[in-house]
């Protein structure tokens, strides 16, 4: 692989604050990452970690009046945060598109599926309605919707959850985006359907050569689809690396805790090793490492200032003062 290739996405020191009369919520506090073309990055985190907020910033989907975004986001040749609203609409759908957790809210209930796909195609490519419909059919076959002609004429509520998710993906892929943002797209699906959608997404990503940023709270889903993984906690990326490095050899205590508290085949006789406590209040973040109050490895220095990212291997870094101790523990877990 050409290591000097320019990243498709560059996010630098992204900060997002939601400001209201009652509070100032620091949702994202200095996030930086790169995404290479046709690479899949999974952002893992629990609710309130800022994973969705980070991704939505790339499409500037936050209500502008209540949101303060600072930092730098580049996608392809577009400097996202300095684009006009009109230029942004050109980017949305054509260069970057997005799939959501709940397709019922993303698809318009009063239009047929086919018309929704065709409309996106026509708006961005200016082709005729007939051509757009032909394209829509092609897309529905691509996302493996059975009897696609019939489904094109269906309304969203007439489809099952799995088919709706596929239809939404067809809408998202209609203009061959170079970057696909996926916000927990399989979380609401049944297990048997979830794996079908993941396999399909993996194939489409390879065929289209798309870059994908995939937000999930499920480590199992990340293991299925990710090349790179970024773990977020309290609005910061606390660990970053290849999927095998992060999930099999975690270097941050939070990632380690997340892995050991995820139920998979533990003995019924023992308790699960849970992370005690709950995430910090984003309105009043502690000054040092935000995970320190829940961390069994914490030392006094952890609460002094936020620890910088420490490289623990090629392309694998964690922001923790105690990576060495943590890695010993995680090796023990792996063996």
């Amino acid at each position: 692989m050409d290591m000097s290739a320019r990243p498709l996405v560059e996010v630098r020191d992204l900060q997002v604050n939601f400001v209201s009369r009652e509070a100032n919520v620091a949702a994202v506090n200095g996030v930086s990452f790169d995404l290479m073309p046709s690479e899949v990055l999974c952002i893992i985190g629990e609710s309130g970690s800022g994973k969705s907020v980070t991704m939505r910033s790339i499409l500037r989907l936050h209500p502008p009046r209540r949101t303060v975004i600072r930092g730098h986001i580049r996608v392809g040749d577009y400097d996202i945060l300095s684009l006009s609203e009109r230029a942004m609409n050109e980017v949305r759908g054509a260069v970057v598109s997005m799939v959501f957790q709940e397709p019922m809210t993303a698809l318009d209930p009063v239009y047929r599926i086919g018309d929704q796909i065709a409309e996106t195609v026509m708006r961005h490519e200016g082709c005729s309605h007939a051509d757009a419909m032909a394209r829509a059919l092609e897309l529905m076959e691509l996302v493996k919707v059975p009897s696609p002609e019939r489904r094109l004429r269906a309304f969203p509520h007439e489809l099952s959850g799995g088919l709706r998710q596929r239809a939404m993906m067809a809408v998202a892929l209609s203009c061959r985006p170079t970057l696909l943002l996926a916000d927990e797209p399989t979380t609401a699906l049944d297990a048997t359907v979830q794996i079908q959608v993941l396999i399909m997404l993996r194939k489409l990503q390879r065929d289209f050569g798309m870059g994908v940023i995939f937000v999930t709270h499920d480590l199992g889903v990340a293991a299925q689809i990710a090349d790179k993984v970024a773990v977020m906690y309290a609005g910061r990326i606390i660990e970053y690396g290849s999927v095998a490095d992060v999930l099999m050899r975690p270097a941050h205590p939070y990632t380690l805790g997340l892995l050991s508290s995820t139920v998979h085949g533990q003995s019924r006789e023992t308790e699960i090793e849970a992370i005690p406590g709950s995430p910090p209040d984003l309105r009043h973040l502690p000054p040092g490492c935000s995970f320190a109050p829940r961390c069994k490895f914490a030392i006094p220095a952890c609460s002094a200032s936020f620890p910088p990212l420490v490289a623990v291997g090629p392309n694998h870094a964690a922001s923790c003062l105690r990576v060495d101790v943590v890695r010993q523990d995680s090796m023990a877990l792996a063996s």
């Binding site: 308790e271 699960i272 849970a274 005690p276 406590g277 709950s278 910090p280 209040d281 109050p293 829940r294």
Partner: peptide, 12 residues
């Protein structure tokens, strides 16, 4: 129970 051991809820 482990769920109830430390009470870091106090902080928030």
């Amino acid at each position: 129970g482990a769920g109830a051991t430390a009470d870091p809820n106090a902080r928030e």
